[in-house]
Amino acid sequence: MKVLVATEKPFAAVAVEGIKKEIEGAGNELVLLEKYTDVAQLLDAVKDADAMIVRSDKVTPAVLDAAKNLKIVVRAGAGYDSIDTAYAKEKGVIVENTPGQNSNAVAELVFGLMVYAVRNFYNGKAGTELMGKKLGILAFGNVGRNVARVAKGFGMDVYAYDAFCPKEVIEEAGVKAVDSQEELFKNCDVVSLHIPATPETKQSINYNLVNMMKKGGMVVNTARKEVINEPELIKLMEERTDLKYITDIKPDADEEFAKFEGRYFSTPKKMGAQTAEANINAGIAAAKQINAYFKDGCTKFQVNK
């Protein structure tokens, strides 16, 4: 079987070696398409691939139509909104992700951003501490659990809300479960977002919700930019000069947010999974999942059932 690794933003060299070892060790062929600059290159490379590993690369209907032999696509990471999963299902193509492989990397970034923000972006002026503050975690999946773990080390008071995770499961992790996202925003000093971009969540972080936060509130977004209602958040930050918005996903309205000096920060590119360890873990996990599918028909991580 031919396995295409199509990465506009390549894996680290050591990750590629690990992927190659897994794929070729199982008797399959590995083909690399790295740093491609035109979708035509992807369309050409995928035409005879049986499987594909991607990172944040867009797998559109055009890509799926070009891939006549494609049976499975694995996104090396948790989020998979860059893949047209519904069309893939129509075409009989399995789509999987690699949940949990990037979780610690994202959680550590959350705290890097939080410390940077509460210390006034290290401008030399006195800031505040995280110890004793109330942290709200919106969605208690793999990343949310790791954020809770790190937060306890900082001495924070940790709360969480997840519409799909039973309260008992949250409480078993030593975290206070609340009944709604509104309650989370009302109670917490900092809210860290870990929700996927779905029809229900897109633009759900809006004026009314964030305005429930107490004075000095901060929203940290390492999830997806689409969950933020940018015009409404800008309006709110204009009215409330105490609020901070910190993210590793540059907003569409970055220039407008930039006027909130000392209250807004965005990394130039999405940084959540940008560690050597996460890069390696996710890539090798993707390779193993493809091998498992070809060997035993395993679809444990399928997201388009």
Rank of each mutant, 00 (worst) to 15 (best):
N120S: 11
A26K: 02
D65C: 11
S103R: 09
K68T: 10
G297R: 01
V63L: 09
V227T: 04
A126P: 15
H194A: 05
M237S: 12
D65G: 08
I246V: 09
V31T: 12
L64K: 06
F260C: 14
V110N: 06
A282N: 01
P231C: 11
K152P: 14
V118I: 10
G283W: 00
K269F: 10
G92P: 06
A177S: 15
E29N: 10
K2Y: 06
A151H: 08
V169T: 15
L193I: 12
T7V: 14
L42K: 05
A66Q: 07
A287R: 01
A51P: 05
F11D: 04
I72C: 03
I195D: 00
E183C: 12
Y264M: 11
K58E: 13
V3K: 02
T85Q: 04
A285V: 03
N221I: 03
D57R: 09
T241S: 15
I94F: 05
L243K: 05
D157N: 15
Q41D: 14
A62C: 05
P166D: 13
N28I: 03
A253S: 15
K68D: 09
Q289G: 00
K9C: 13
K235G: 09
F301V: 00
P196Q: 06
C298Y: 00
K215V: 10
E200V: 06
Q181D: 11
N102D: 07
V16G: 09
S103Y: 00
M114Q: 05
E256K: 15
K133S: 14
K244H: 09
L193S: 01
K270E: 11
V73R: 01
N102Y: 02
F185V: 14
